[in-house]
Amino acid sequence: MNPVRTVGPVIRRRNDEARGALIAYLPVGFPTLDESVEAAVALVENGVDVLELGLPYSDPVMDGPVIQAATQQALANGFRVADGFDAVRRITERTDAPVLIMTYWNPVVQYGVDRFADDLAAAGGAGLITPDLIPDEAAEWVAASDRTGLDRVFLAAPTSTDARIRQAVEASRGFVYAVSTMGITGARSDVDQAARTLVTRLSHAGAPASCVGLGISTGAQVAEVLEYADGAIVGSALVKALADGGVEAASTLAADLARGTRVE
């Protein structure tokens, strides 16, 4: 098996040569499996550094209306968890970008945590972002990711205590996902000041990298976030562009977002 293409080196490199990394979320299977693969490749060609592929799930409590609608459509089209590995394989064959899977926890449990880790590593995936799995409950996944070398990205929130921030930093590998504001996914006009404070706390706790997500939708916001964070994560805005204007619109938005990573 090839060594896992982890996200840490890419985030470091982008912080050396630019403001930081641009991380893009797309759900697998939306609008179709093939189009989701094409869209992901196009995002990388337009300046996205790391991909985050969402596995559609029936009960996505962290997601707002845009991603809910997209993932419901993917499920209605017959999405299967194994399609996620297929998409990772096809994307990593065509791009150099590391590909994380973002998934709610039950699909991993039902697939089998070890089997999931093995199949993700075999497909060329970088690791997992787990929005409803806290480190306290993650012993099985920590063991499986240690064994396979996969990244594991846990979340930190503005309300997290110092002890929980330290726990997230210690448990994560790749980066810590800093939830920019209290809420669910969806574009917002201003990204909360709370994000800046949270990233400072994470870095004091020793986080090698912190990336900020929830609410980012423009290149200007990417630039603003990258003043203090190592990466900016964009989801709903790209999904909406893909839903409304197809791969072309998503690519155009990605290019605008990527301008926010560049030092003028």
Partner: peptide, 11 residues
């Protein structure tokens, strides 16, 4: 257990 987003843990 507690299989929830980190944002809810404080609450």
């Amino acid at each position: 257990g507690r299989f929830v987003p980190e944002s809810l843990i404080a609450a």
